[in-house]
């Protein structure tokens, strides 16, 4: 039986279709980036980065939003990293594979699946109202921690599990305890992978809007303490655009946000490259 389409034709057709798919993916990315940069370029000046906004952001700069974003990331980082790595160490090294680990892992997966707006609402009810943190850096940072915690637990656990078992055996055979083995051999070996995961987690958090609009507030003033409200960059551009304050300023803020995310991702790649060389063979 002769096939309807000859193998060489289907081969060529497949190649063309795959090429088209790849091109669409790349072009979409380039188009979005190009469009935003072109739109935002006219407002991008040094004073845009270093000045406070005037007239609700229609004029002036975005410095308080940049500072606010950094403050939020700091709180998120300082809370998510120790808790996330601690949980990952427990899951990967201490807990026996069984019902308990499955329940914890399932819980972590579920947490990862909660829509960010719901986490925002919970952050508002629990952190801002119940714990009395109000609209503040603390509430916003902790709510973002809830959001990226599952991610950090998952990557850290995988990095720990990727450490060759031979290293653990070697450490035990030298008379080291479990904790000495974990803290001196396993964790340092897994750190490059964990760091990359944490940085990418921060990259997710930095662009998050729904979580912080209910928790961090929308103040355009410079924060002076953890309990001050701030307006993070993504929320700032959301307000600029949705309330028709200034599209130009919104695009300008977008460019700044994109550059921040790009820098974060490049840092992750650089760390992976750097440690890739030293990585354990076998």
């Amino acid at each position: 039986m002769t096939p309807l389409i000859s193998p060489s034709t289907s081969n060529r057709a497949a190649k063309v279709m795959l090429w088209v798919s790849a091109s669409i993916s790349i072009l979409t990315l380039l188009f979005i980036l190009g469009y935003i940069v072109v739109q935002g370029l006219s407002v991008l000046t040094l004073s845009f980065l270093l000045e406070s906004p005037r007239l609700s952001g229609a004029e002036g700069g975005i410095l308080p939003a940049i500072v606010g974003t950094f403050c939020l990331m700091l709180v998120t980082l300082l809370s998510a990293v120790p808790i996330g790595i601690g949980a990952a160490i427990y899951l990967a090294e201490y807990a026996h594979e069984g019902a308990v680990t499955r329940i914890i892992s399932f819980g972590v997966e579920c947490l990862a699946g909660i829509p960010s707006i719901v986490i925002g609402l919970f952050g508002y009810a629990f952190l801002a109202i119940y714990l009395g943190f109000g609209f503040s850096i603390l509430s916003g940072g902790l709510a973002l921690m809830f959001m990226i915690l599952p991610w950090i637990v998952r990557v850290s656990e995988e990095s720990l599990k990727a450490v060759p078992g031979g290293l653990r055996e070697a450490s035990f055979a030298l008379g080291a305890t479990k904790w000495q083995t974990v803290s001196r051999v396993v964790l340092p070996t897994a750190i490059p992978g964990i760091t990359t995961g944490v940085i990418l987690g921060i990259g997710k958090a930095i662009g998050e809007t729904a979580v912080i609009m209910f928790t961090a507030g929308s103040s355009l003033l410079m924060p002076t303490s953890l309990f001050d409200p701030v307006r993070a960059l993504p929320y700032h551009l959301y307000i600029l655009a949705s309330e028709g304050i200034s599209d130009k300023m919104a695009y300008g803020s977008s460019v700044v946000l994109l550059v921040m995310v790009l820098v974060i991702n490049l840092a992750a790649v650089a760390i992976q490259r750097h440690y890739g060389r030293h990585h354990v063979r076998n």
Binding site: L167, E169, P188
Partner: peptide, 28 residues
């Protein structure tokens, strides 16, 4: 295990310096 040491089939040095590898046991 401090009194009974073991050398394994596959060489399994820790991913640290030569010095730190040898000093690992005494430090622990």
């Amino acid at each position: 295990r401090k009194k009974i040491g073991m050398v394994f089939q596959k060489p399994n040095p820790f991913p640290m310096s030569i010095y730190d590898n040898v000093a690992y046991g005494p430090r622990v």
